[in-house]
Nucleic acid binder design. Structure first.
Lengths: 98, 98
DNA sequence: TCCATAGTTCAAGAATAATGGAATTAAAAG
DNA sequence: CTTTTAATTCCATTATTCTTGAACTATGGA
């Protein structure tokens, strides 16, 4: 994972609404949930939610599939896990400890 | 860890300079490194770096101690670990899987 | 074909965050 | 007590991000 991807993931999650959306999708598991249900559950206007979902998708933290008239979003948890790995890489390499 | 703390940590790390500072401090380990060395190594103006260090410190991701004329910063990696735990909490609880 | 439902896109203004220069604090040395 | 080194704070400017309403696309049903 490169710096740019990490920055995109971090700034995607660094917003109240998007953090809530991501966590909601995490609880929903691989089956995901339609945009409309997310909007309702979190009380976010549909257009605003679209903006935030696009942000999460762009950062690789969520993906969407169409099912009839609905767009079903689900969380990509692997990307989130990759972030902490990047953060902790090379821990203490400048000191003979740990 | 509450939502507000997570948001502060995420937005602290969601910036190129601060992400680099944090990772540099992670490699430096518990001994940390003085602000001046960070500024030099990352080629960031002292005042700008101060701004970013304050941001990291405020988010609980770094701490500082004075040693003569220098301020030695070190990373608080536990806070970073707590973030991913928060993100992955209650995974799939809405679906009988995982 | 016409209408309703489900979401997205666009453009604007509003709110937040980042940068750079000048002044300021803190500690140690001459 | 003056100077130097180390770093921070303040303030104005600039840049970025968020929100809102209106218009638009896509799908399915009457």
């Amino acid at each position: 994972m490169d710096e740019q991807a990490v920055l995109m993931a971090l700034s995607a999650l660094a917003h109240e609404s998007r953090l809530r959306v991501f966590r909601l999708l995490v609880t929903a598991g691989p089956n995901g949930m339609p945009a409309g249900h997310i909007a309702e559950e979190l009380a976010i206007a549909p257009n605003t939610l679209s903006f935030h979902l696009a942000h999460l998708k762009n950062a690789g933290l969520a993906s969407a599939r169409r099912e009839s008239r609905s767009l079903i979003y689900s969380a990509d948890t692997g990307q989130a896990r990759a972030v902490i790995e990047y953060l902790m890489e090379n821990c203490c390499t400048r000191q003979p400890c740990c």
